[in-house]
């Protein structure tokens, strides 16, 4: 099978990252599955699949440098919750969204705490930048630092 993943080339590499909102060096570590990560005490990068529970990682946040969240199909939104759960628990490392990601998911993903994007098919640069910049304001709290409209109204 062409799309079968072997343990050696698991996850994305820095070259696959199309958009990044961090100043530090791009994390370049082979990723492991959540199950493997929980068994290995030296792993620093992990890949979360939709069925994984991000809360399993919470005891190990201090040694994590890269968390990749896979979206095999963009309509499966479990990764949005995984991202927020990690950020709410204080994870500050790279949070990379990978897989079936389109222009119209970027703003939502960004708000849930993703700061790196490795879409399976490269996105139109101009359309993507327009999407990241589209919303001047937001209605609700999420994992970004944006203050929602209901708070801005009462400053």
């Amino acid at each position: 099978m062409a799309n079968e993943v072997s343990e050696t080339d698991f996850g994305t590499s820095p070259d696959d990252v199309q958009f990044r909102f961090r100043d530090d060096e791009v994390a370049d570590h082979a990723q492991v599955t959540v199950d493997s990560f929980l068994e290995q005490t030296n792993a620093v990068a992990v890949r979360i699949e939709p069925g994984d529970d991000a809360r399993d990682l919470l005891p190990f946040l201090d040694r994590l440098q890269l968390v990749e969240v896979n979206f095999p199909v963009f309509g499966d939104g479990r990764g949005y919750s995984s991202a927020r759960v990690l950020r709410e628990a204080g994870y500050t490392g790279e949070l990379r969204a990978v897989g079936d990601i389109g222009i119209d998911q970027l703003a939502y993903l960004r708000r849930c705490g993703f700061d790196a994007f490795a879409p399976e098919a490269a996105l139109d640069e101009e359309d993507a930048q327009a999407a990241f910049a589209r919303w001047d304001n937001v209605y609700q709290h999420a994992a970004d630092a944006r203050r929602p409209i209901p708070e801005l109204r009462h400053e």
């Binding site: 963009f74 309509g75 499966d76 939104g77 949005y80 919750s81 927020r84 998911q105 703003a107 939502y108 993903l109 960004r110 708000r111 849930c112 919303w135 937001v138 209605y139 609700q140 999420a142 409209i149 209901p150």
Partner: peptide, 16 residues
Amino acid sequence: ELLRQWSSFHPEFSFL
């Protein structure tokens, strides 16, 4: 109305 605003473009719950 409070819930309308909260739920509009909710980033976590748009692909339920």
